[in-house]
């Protein structure tokens, strides 16, 4: 092959580098199949959302939030008790699970030495994150409702949800703490900071956005739970507001409220009011997730 035949040699290069026959037959359809899977999932969600919107949007009004539920007239009913119940549950659950979860994470990451006991703890926490939520409800029922005498109260519901999300908070907080470079700790220690000062003044502030993100995401899981709070006695309370400080009062929650709407025979409850309730719950959930994402993006420190 001489230099005088560039066309031929170019052709040869092309034929060497060309995709083997049949590869395109696999590659392309595979891509389409993956795209199809993605679109199907999205389409199902979109359909559900559209359905709920069509059914429920008409019922959304200020009165729907502020009215007590009315068992007779669907047009007069509201989700006030469910909303106050859910908000109270969230406040209490956060107040219980955040300090305990962050405390456990700080201990495991910053203080615990690496021995068999610590590894056993870590393995257990990872496993606890996968335990079905109703199990936490049953645990709360026997330990707190009966043995400690909390009764079927708001505090018991918050305890059940706290148990449920504690492992999630611990795992997320540990990851946020682990992302703080060791050199920061060394730098602070070399200046004569005590371990407590290193943790409280350097490590925790740097890890806090990550910890908060994890906590909010965990709370947004708790907000939609109904099984564990049903087990410890969440009620569909018709004419009672729940406040976070009414620890030993009966309590309701949005998912319970929605479930109660669905159980009614009239379409005005079963479809319209229930859909509107679902919209409110979804909006709460998406807002929490948005805050979590905002925190993560806004305060993420790069080293």
């Amino acid at each position: 092959m001489g230099l005088g035949t560039p066309e031929k040699s170019a052709q040869q290069v092309t034929s060497d580098m060309a995709a083997p026959r049949g590869r395109a037959l696999i590659e392309r359809p595979f891509q389409w199949a993956l795209l199809g899977a993605t679109l199907l999932a999205l389409a199902l969600l979109a359909a559900l959302l559209a359905d709920v919107l069509i059914d429920g949007a008409g019922r959304l009004s200020w009165d729907f939030f502020t009215d007590y539920s009315d068992s007779l007239d669907p047009a007069e009913t509201g989700i006030r008790t469910g909303l106050t119940g859910t908000m109270s549950l969230m406040v209490l659950t956060a107040a219980i699970s955040f300090p305990i979860g962050v405390g456990a994470a700080v201990y495991l990451e910053e203080y615990a030495s690496d021995n068999r006991f610590t590894r056993l703890l870590q393995l257990n926490i990872a496993n606890l994150a996968g335990v079905p939520s109703v199990v936490y409800g049953l645990l709360t029922l026997s330990a707190f409702v009966y043995v400690l005498g909390f009764g079927r109260s708001l505090l018991a519901g918050a305890m059940a949800l706290s148990l449920l999300i504690l492992p999630i908070i611990i795992v997320a907080s540990r990851e946020a703490l682990r992302a703080v470079p060791q050199s920061i700790r060394n730098g602070a220690l070399a200046l004569g900071a005590t371990p407590l000062q290193v943790t409280s003044r350097q490590v925790l502030p740097i890890a806090l956005p990550g910890i908060l993100t994890g906590t909010i995401l965990a709370l947004s899981r708790a907000i939609g739970e109904s099984a564990p709070i049903l087990v410890v006695g969440a009620v569909f309370s018709r004419r009672a507001d729940t406040w976070p400080w009414e620890l030993f009062e009966p309590f309701g929650a949005l998912p319970i409220q929605i479930f109660n709407f669905v159980r009614q025979p009239e379409p005005g409850f079963q479809i319209e009011a229930a859909s509107a309730g679902i919209l409110v719950l979804l909006a709460l959930l998406l807002t929490m997730n948005a805050v979590a994402i905002f925190l993560r993006n806004r305060y993420q420190k790069r080293f």
Partner: peptide, 12 residues
């Protein structure tokens, strides 16, 4: 007894 490390490690 202060220390300066190999990689600069300013606090963020």
């Amino acid at each position: 007894i202060g220390m300066v490390f190999q990689e600069p490690n300013p606090f963020p």
